[in-house]
Write a protein that binds this DNA or RNA. Structure first.
Lengths: 226, 226
DNA sequence: ACAAAAGTGTTGTCCGTACACCCATGT
DNA sequence: ACATGGGTGTACGGACAACACTTTTGT
């Protein structure tokens, strides 16, 4: 067998949504290379650990974040992406609900922070590319799978959902048509509770009915938002 | 840095289309484990080689195939997928036109062959899973990108394209609507040449106009076949 | 003349889009 | 009473789906 000394890492692009902003979770590197640069959370995979387990462990260790959605994104393997060794990074794409946004600046004295995707700092390695890939994935996936709900609180206002779509897809959406479309899917539960945001007419709260979604999906229903 | 001894491999699912059948390129393993089983072409990545270069090299070495389309599929990294070592496999998805179907049974005395996807043998490792992932990708991608043309000869009959869609998507398609839809995209060139298949009315040959497609795509056009 | 595949047009239905006014509340 | 955001209905047009007969060739 060929001698090979390539390291395998995982990195995660973790998205959060708050105050009408799409945010990404970054950590400040405490060691060289790229010391003091911001980077995606991640690290080397352990010998007997699945890739998913590695991502979850690293996220826990480095950020203490609780993940609501996780899927593999892409593997980056250009020979010189890490100046030290040859490292292949299997990257993941994660979503976090607002109730899980609390993070730690942990014991390793690494800083951890949420950044508005519109105001990103310079990133270490090829993490900018990874992040852009993830953003595209988020945008396209939002239109054909109900992953937006993993960026909202369990109970949410229709206007929140609508703003989330506008923010992430970076375009205007007609309020009436959007509501009609989503409601026609029959995957939301309208709660009795109303919420007053201080001014304006109080709004109804909704909940995503996951069970119902999976049932409909099995029957051939396709979630699809233009 | 953590000690880590994980190997990185690439494997490719190579699809071809001939005689109304979707075929996959497999090699017969000449060594243990899974000696004499059929497997996807692939192998370990070399120290200073990009992932894509590794796939291309392995395909050349093992099958001598000429690839018309290549994209990364998914990375498989379950700890015990290879009984010898921990191996992460970054898998690729490839398409080959009929004019490039000729392959070699090479010097290593490995057999190489095309298999109808409906009549697959047992596969080594987790290659069955990989193949199923690739098939799904092919099916979905066929509907939103013009990759079907990378499975046909440069000049083809409309009926070939239609049969290809029916074969891969495993469903009936209305001839008239399909033709109207595809022609409306304005990405095909109708040639003067006609071909007689022996019986029936001779048909016109068509060519995919790649340049035109990319131009339209840049202008916001979306290829889309239900 | 018959068999086989190619080529073509119309109609109805459904879905997407555009668009504006009233409602419930807080100040 | 005014400002703010929430909630709703209609009409038009374009795209998709369903559908059958004629044409050109080989035998």
């Amino acid at each position: 067998m060929v001698r090979q000394n390539i390291k395998v890492a995982v990195d995660a692009v973790v998205f959060g949504y708050k105050d009408k902003m799409l945010n990404v979770l970054l950590i400040k590197r405490s060691i060289e290379p790229f010391k003091n640069s911001w980077a995606l959370p991640g690290g080397l995979v352990l010998e007997n650990e699945s890739l998913e387990a590695a991502v979850e462990r690293e996220l826990k260790e480095e950020t203490n974040a609780t993940i609501d959605y996780l899927e593999q994104l892409y593997s980056f393997g250009t020979p010189n992406r890490d100046p030290r060794n040859r490292v292949i990074s299997v990257t993941y794409f994660a979503l976090v609900k607002p109730e899980h946004h609390t993070i730690k600046a942990d014991t390793d004295a690494k800083d951890v922070a949420w950044f508005d995707i519109q105001k990103l700092p310079e990133l270490a390695f090829d993490h900018k590319t990874i992040l852009e890939t993830a953003k595209k994935r988020l945008q396209s996936k939002l239109t054909y799978e109900p992953i937006g709900f993993d960026l909202l609180t369990d109970k949410f206002l229709f206007s929140d959902l609508e703003k989330l779509y506008m923010t992430i897809l970076e375009k205007e959406i007609d309020r009436r048509n959007f509501r009609k479309k989503i409601l026609s899917f029959d995957i939301l539960e309208e709660l009795e509770e109303k919420v007053s945001e201080g001014r304006g007419r109080p709004a109804n709260l909704f909940k995503f009915n996951k069970k119902q979604y999976f049932k409909l999906k099995k029957e051939g229903f396709l979630f699809d938002i233009k």
